[in-house]
Structures are given as structure tokens and as C-alpha cells.
Computed example of a mutant assay.
Amino acid sequence: MSMPAMRTVYGTLLNFRGEFDAWAPKMNEAPYKAPPKAPVLYIKPANTWSADGAAITLPANVPQVEVGATIGMVMKGGSEVAGYVLMNDLSVPHASFFRPPVKFKCIDGFLGIGSRLRARNEAGDPSVFKLEVRINGELKQTVRFADLVRPADRLLADVGEFMTMAAGDVLMLGCDVGRPLARAGDTISISMPALGTLTNTLIAEAP
């Protein structure tokens, strides 16, 4: 299935049980003083998008990045999903997920996007999806989407309570804890049989 023109890419925080539990002790602290009741979203704008196979440049002041292997739901419009695509939501390591700083998550090139869109009716149940993350060929992480706080359909329904998803919008399901770190010179591969492999190589910024 060919990839439609993308419109806006939304990331989802705290949607893996491990990540949610890791931050739970701080959720009752200021400023929020309670766990979030709705999905916590952020945007990966067009300047961050990198195609499968593209080199991604690390700024000179960024020695390493977190690899955020995830799956994006690509929308037909409203609550209808066209299909699923692999994504690598790169981020500079930082200490808080309550207000994700733009400067850490929205650097040029910091979202790898797979070239294969698998139609929803062909991909099966997202709760059984499993991704493997390799850096330079070595397995570093396995991401199981059975561990989501909000499974795909519920996440989409809950987001629909406060915003409308248009055709070409993409909603990422979230990133698990244990995200591996990568540096300039590393090649990152994220794979799942139904969705193929997303590969990007990190390169250092030219002096």
C-alpha cells in the first residue's frame, strides 16, 4: 500500500505501561498533582521527517540520542485508519516527559518514517505487534504493543474526544521504556515482518 501525503504527526507520551509506571511517583507532584486523564500528545513537525534509508545529522552539541521505536497509525480521516507504518521517534535524552521540550524532540531529521504502509485490514490486531530494534546489527530492544496503557482503538477514540484527525494525520502509539542510545556513525534498524524494516544512519554535523 502506498504511503499517502502526511499532514501532521502526533506522538503519544506515557502510553506504555512501563513508562507510565516509571513516572507514576511524580504524577501527584506540582504542577499537575494527578495522573493525566486524557492522552498526552506532542507534535513532530515536518522538519523532523526523515525517509527510510536517509542519514540523520546529529548537531555538534548532541552526543547521543534515544531511539524511539514505534508504530504510526496513518489516518483516512475521522476515526478511520488507513494503515500502520514504522517510525523512529528520536529524542535528545532529557529528564522530564510532562512538558516535552521542543528543542529535544523536534530537531531536524529526528523522525525516521518507514516506506511501507500496511493496510489496517491486512496488518491484524495492533496489540500483538512486536518490533525489534537493532543498532549496527545488534538487537538492543524488543517493543511489544500488548503493553500499551491505551490500545490503538482506545487511544484513537480518546484523542477523538478533543480533536479531529484528518486524512494524512499520523498518531504514534508511543515509545516503551528501555530506549537504546545511539551515536553518530550508528545504523539503526527497526523491523516487524508485516511492516518491513526502517533503517537510518546517524552522522555527525559537519564542522
Rank of each mutant, 00 (worst) to 15 (best):
L171F: 07
P4D: 02
A22F: 04
R116G: 02
R118P: 00
A22H: 10
P4E: 09
P35T: 15
P101E: 03
A46W: 01
L198R: 04
S79V: 05
N47C: 10
L181C: 07
L131Y: 09
K76L: 08
G11A: 13
V159I: 14
R99A: 08
M75S: 15
N121E: 14
P126V: 15
P35E: 08
S189Y: 04
M3A: 02
R144M: 06
M192V: 10
T197V: 15
L111F: 03
G109T: 14
S79K: 12
V65W: 00
L202Q: 09
L173S: 06
A24D: 06
A46M: 03
L202M: 11
R116H: 11
I71L: 06
L173T: 10
G112W: 12
N28S: 07
V159E: 03
L14Q: 05
L173W: 05
L58H: 05
I188S: 02
I190Q: 05
D176F: 00
N88G: 07
A123Y: 03
L90V: 13
A24N: 00
T8G: 02
G77T: 11
P193A: 15
A167Q: 14
P35D: 10
K140E: 04
K37E: 14
C175M: 09
Y10P: 03
S189K: 00
M192I: 12
D147K: 06
V74G: 01
Q64F: 09
G114Y: 07
G137P: 00
I71F: 03
C175E: 06
G11M: 07
Y32W: 11
K130A: 15
M3Y: 01
E122A: 14
P151E: 04
G160L: 07
L86F: 03
L13V: 12
I43H: 00
S191V: 12
P36E: 06
R183P: 00
R17M: 06
Q141A: 04
V170W: 04
G18V: 06
R144E: 13
T70V: 12
A54I: 12
L58F: 10
P36L: 04
V170S: 04
V159L: 01
V74Q: 00
G77H: 14
D176Q: 04
E161V: 14
G178T: 12
L117V: 07
S127Q: 10
T48I: 09
N15C: 08
G196L: 03
E29H: 08
L155C: 07
S115C: 05
N15D: 05
R118G: 02
I56F: 09
G78F: 14
A22I: 02
K33P: 01
R99P: 00
T8R: 09
V62C: 09
A167E: 15
V67C: 08
I71H: 04
M1W: 02
R144T: 15
F16D: 01
E205L: 08
M27D: 02
L14G: 00
L86A: 02
R17P: 00
Y84V: 12
F129G: 03
A5F: 01
P35H: 12
Y42T: 12
T164C: 07
A157I: 09
T197N: 01
T57A: 08
N61Y: 13
K103G: 01
I188M: 05
D21L: 09
P63K: 14
F104W: 06
G124K: 10
G160V: 09
M1H: 10
A182F: 05
R17H: 04
V128Q: 13
N88H: 02
L41R: 12
P180W: 13
A34Y: 00
M73A: 15
P25R: 13
P59Y: 10
L41W: 11
